[in-house]
């Protein structure tokens, strides 16, 4: 029962997060980035809560506890959603989603190009979704400007570097042609981010409460020891920039 439920959860997860699925080698998810509309994000969040409620009723096991930790981490982050404030959530996924399959080499070149062309066609809509979703009251200029530097490389990556991943001149031409509208979309997105960086008034700081929750519920998941949470939290309360007495030894994780 537990195994079947966890298999169903993984299947659901892959269908809702095809870019991640493709990255770990799921070929049925190779041709799409997925749905990045606000409605899709909100629907996924509701479905994750339902999965969390279901998995929490299962007998404890390492695999069940792993899935629960992932879902609890996602639930905690709903209070500060990356898709509303961090443009890298979109651009990073696009860049690695396009290059990764060529590095991994799971399919012949022609099939890789077919799936990549399908994803290149989605790039304008993914970036348009990003522009609709990013909230200036939540985004911070520091984070936006960091991603802007990456987004500005979009055109040259798509038109000059991505086609070099295949050896056939015909396939290179196919990739370059399909990349044109995507490159234009990256140019538009650069302009959008330049403007957003000016308007952005959000804070990049996570805050202690959420920081601690993420560590406890997701990253460490009941170590039964203080090392994870105390290592991360203790220095915060004692560090002051003006202090001349801050000793590195006080960072010990076992304190």
């Amino acid at each position: 029962m537990t195994t079947d439920t966890l298999a169903s959860f993984l299947s659901w997860y892959f269908d809702r997060h095809p870019a991640h699925a493709a990255g770990v080698g799921s070929l049925p998810h190779y041709s799409t980035f997925g749905d990045f509309s606000a409605a899709a994000f909100e629907q996924r969040a509701r479905e994750k809560e339902a999965w969390l409620a279901e998995l929490e009723t299962l007998p404890r096991s390492v695999d069940r506890d792993l899935a629960v930790s992932v879902l609890r981490g996602a639930s905690a982050m709903e209070a500060w959603p990356g898709w509303r404030r961090d443009p890298h959530e979109y651009s990073g996924m696009i860049f690695f989603g396009l290059l990764g399959p060529f590095l991994h080499g799971l399919l012949p070149e022609a099939e890789l190009v077919t799936s990549t062309v399908a994803k290149l066609r989605e790039v304008p809509s993914v970036l348009a979704a990003a522009e609709a979703n990013l909230d200036p009251s939540l985004a911070s200029s520091l984070v936006v400007l960091r991603t802007l530097g990456q987004v500005r490389t979009g055109r040259s990556f798509l038109l000059d570097q991505l086609p070099l991943q295949v050896s056939s001149p015909e396939l290179r031409a196919t990739l370059a042609e399909a990349a044109g509208p995507a490159a234009d979309a990256f140019d538009r997105h650069s302009a959008f981010l330049e403007d957003l960086a000016v308007r952005a008034g959000g804070d990049w700081r996570m805050g202690e409460k959420l920081y601690s929750t993420v560590l406890q519920d997701k990253e460490c998941s009941a170590t039964g020891r203080r090392s994870c949470t105390s290592a991360a939290r203790t220095p915060t309360r004692r560090w002051r920039p003006s202090s001349s007495s801050w000793p590195g030894r006080r960072t010990g994780a076992r304190r």
């Binding site: 700081r205 805050g207 202690e208 220095p235 915060t236 560090w239 590195g248």
Partner: peptide, 18 residues
């Protein structure tokens, strides 16, 4: 890596500027 522990927590808890 020890310095990263101090800096990350201090940044995100408001105890340090970039």
């Amino acid at each position: 890596r020890a310095a990263r522990m101090i800096v990350d927590t201090a940044l995100h808890c408001g105890d340090m500027t970039p």
